[in-house]
Design a protein around this nucleic acid. Sequence first.
DNA 1: CCGATCCATGACGAACCGTCAACTTTTGAC
DNA 2: GTCAAAAGTTGACGGTTCGTCATGGATCGG
Lengths: 217, 217
Amino acid sequence: MDTTLIAPKPRAAALGKREQTKAQNRQMILEAARGVFAELGYGATTVRDIIRATTLASGTFYNYFKSKEEIYQAIRDEAALAIRPQLRAERQKAATVEEFIQATFRTFFEIVTRDEVNFRTIRHSADATRMRMDTPEVIAGFEELREDIESGIARGVFPPIDADYLMAAIVGVAFEMTERILRRENRDAKAAADFATALFMGGIRALPHAGETPGGA
Amino acid sequence: MDTTLIAPKPRAAALGKREQTKAQNRQMILEAARGVFAELGYGATTVRDIIRATTLASGTFYNYFKSKEEIYQAIRDEAALAIRPQLRAERQKAATVEEFIQATFRTFFEIVTRDEVNFRTIRHSADATRMRMDTPEVIAGFEELREDIESGIARGVFPPIDADYLMAAIVGVAFEMTERILRRENRDAKAAADFATALFMGGIRALPHAGETPGGA
DNA sequence: CCGATCCATGACGAACCGTCAACTTTTGAC
DNA sequence: GTCAAAAGTTGACGGTTCGTCATGGATCGG
């Protein structure tokens, strides 16, 4: 295709210098935003705080994002886009309802405990208030889950239940339990996934009893 | 004008005029805030928007609330303080796990469908983003639920499970299902509560099948 | 080497923030 | 009824952030 004669730049420079610095700047701003949001909380940070944490000028921010809200969305969307294929792949390996549920919870909890920074629900700086924002790509992940449930119903793997409500139940448990898991000293993703799976498969009476030391890890 | 001679003002004037207008102003500001938040969404409203919707001057706002965040908190806390005693009372009537779960979901869903305005999760104005904020009194309600579960375990009504996780699961399902219920045309609090209760009692296989028209109401 | 294009820069006007001195109303004492 | 102290309201003010835009420097294609 193009060139050549001699070797093209080793890599990554398939893009011109222009495209390169643009990508760098965007990355620098996102990085700074992650840090500032984590430190000050969403409500307290300003666009100026973010840009001050980079080497760029204030006007430059607006070449990349429209507002504080949009960059926050970009950060969350990025995380959602990273996790969704993993969830979907695990679910599609499932042959039974139990495998489907187990895979969903285990994958989710493992990712969020491993990469806490990205998934920790943003907490308002000082006070006890908690906040959660679902961006478009996160919500698209919810819809994917519902589609997978519906497809399971169509194939006879799931009983013909209300897929919308079941999706909501799974999402609600996943996010709310995440909040509790991250608050604990021993973050045991597997134990949490076992708890949630048992609840969804057999109800409260099937839940592992606290204090038991199950054979597993 | 005020006359007197005869009966004291029929009621409510047990308080001096000062206390009276203070209560009125606070109420007027809260009322205006509810309206503005509902119209513009939390992120887009300013303290000035709220005070403009009253007859008061801008400085007066700060005699009652420190910030936009604090008045939002006050609104949510008010709702939480109203709903918590009802939830607790219903739960305490329960003699079995099933009654406990059923009462929790049914009471919650009935209240939120009846008084949608107060409980609808605040949505960011135009876009698809969703947001939820838990204020201290809401969180205190979570803790109450956990205490009730723990007390149930102590009395032998509940099996000895992880009360923290179960509380999180119930809360997560309640809030996330609320979001779906309010999006539907026919808001059936009972059907939703039956779904959630069946899930928690027997797991997915016990869920009512979609399309069934159960005998009950 | 040159003109065209792209983009970073930082200054600017507008909007909002939270405060505060001045003013009005209420209260309680005489 | 009168008056001084206390409480509370008012809107203007300095300070900060917002989003824009004219300017200028760097990159690109030729």
